Amino acid sequence: MQDVKDDLNSLVGTTAFPDGFDRRGFLKTALGTGFAASVLPVCAQTMIKTDTSGLTAGEVTITVNGQKVPMYRAQPEGKTNLPVILVVSEIFGVHEHIADVARRFAKLGYLALAPDLFVRQGNAAAYPTAAEVIKEVISKVPDAQVMSDLDACVAWAKDNGGNTDKVGITGFCWGGRITWLYAAHNPKVKAGVAWYGRLVGDKTALTPAQPVDIAADLKVPVLGLYGAKDTGIPLESVNKMKEALAKGSSKSSFVIFENSGHAFHADYRPSFVEADAREGWRLCLAWFKTHGVA
């Protein structure tokens, strides 16, 4: 097991792995802490814990159309003119893993922002199953609201040490879909990295377009990181997205991990695949660097 931990450490630098996890202690009590009830118990033996040494990290609040939106912020302490990464969560909200991802970026010199994009609809951490999270919270979140909140995050970054000429976005699962959509919404974004986000689906009043629908007009280069064994996002949908992208000029690309299913980057879940998570992280960082987000 120590070998696993040592390999994981290469992802983020200085880490610590707490022992003796208490199920109750993992319940989300503040932004960037704990985990949603629907994903307990977590896999403590593989979970990465990135420290805050040298960082300014924690919860801040932005106001969007009169609504206070909590946001987890991590950045190098005392630094300005930083490239900006928007980190968009899974359906489970901004829990410890998402905050840790933000700290990983901050350790590498980024201003990383992970907003609570579900704050108006409810607490995604409170429901005992993923199905209930989707029904009671996620299904009620309008894409337009999400785009507006992310715009507000970028505006906040400009006033708080970020260089908004160097903005990237990455997201996981639900956040992977949002990564594609926000890259289309805000052409000033330099690059995106979408981790196993849904690409096709029904159009509704709250979700009027899917990534496949905006692909041909997309200008921002997005890297899609997907698992060949993902039963929820089959390769058929990836191929449809590739065909749609080929009609445009965004220079987006996909990497398919043959040994992984869904959520292979989620080090706190049984779906975690250490080798593919490490390689995906390397590709993510290289993509941002190549496209001017560094």
Rank of each mutant, 00 (worst) to 15 (best):
A209T: 11
D151C: 09
P211F: 15
V193R: 13
P142I: 07
G175P: 00
D149L: 11
G162K: 13
V200D: 14
P187Y: 10
K203G: 01
L150E: 02
N163Q: 00
K188E: 12
P208F: 06
A191M: 06
M147Q: 14
T129S: 11
K140H: 14
V137N: 04
M147T: 15
G175C: 09
P142N: 12
G175T: 01
E136S: 12
S139C: 02
R177K: 14
N186G: 08
T164D: 04
P128K: 09
V193N: 08
L150D: 03
V189Q: 03
Y127N: 05
T204G: 06
H185C: 04
M147H: 14
A191W: 04
K203S: 12
F172I: 00
N163P: 06
G162A: 06
G171W: 02
A194R: 03
V212S: 10
A155D: 15
L206W: 10
G168F: 05
G192I: 00
V141I: 12
V141F: 07
E132H: 01
L206C: 09
A130V: 10
D143N: 08
G201Y: 12
C173P: 11
A205W: 07
Q210R: 10
Q145C: 11
T170H: 12
A144K: 11
K135Q: 15
M147L: 07
A194I: 10
T170D: 08
I178L: 13
W174M: 15
A205I: 03
K203D: 09
G192A: 08
P187G: 11
D165Q: 12
D151V: 11
W156V: 07
I138Q: 14
T170C: 13
W180R: 00
A157E: 01
A152T: 13
V200I: 13
A215G: 05
T179R: 03
D151G: 15
A184Q: 10
R198V: 01
I214E: 14
A209K: 15
G201Q: 08
D165G: 14
R198N: 04
G192P: 00
W156D: 12
V167K: 08
E132W: 09
D149G: 10
W156I: 08
E136Y: 12
A215Y: 07
G171L: 15
A209S: 11
K166N: 01
K203H: 15
A205T: 12
T207V: 10
P142G: 01
K188R: 15
L150H: 07
S139K: 05
D149C: 12
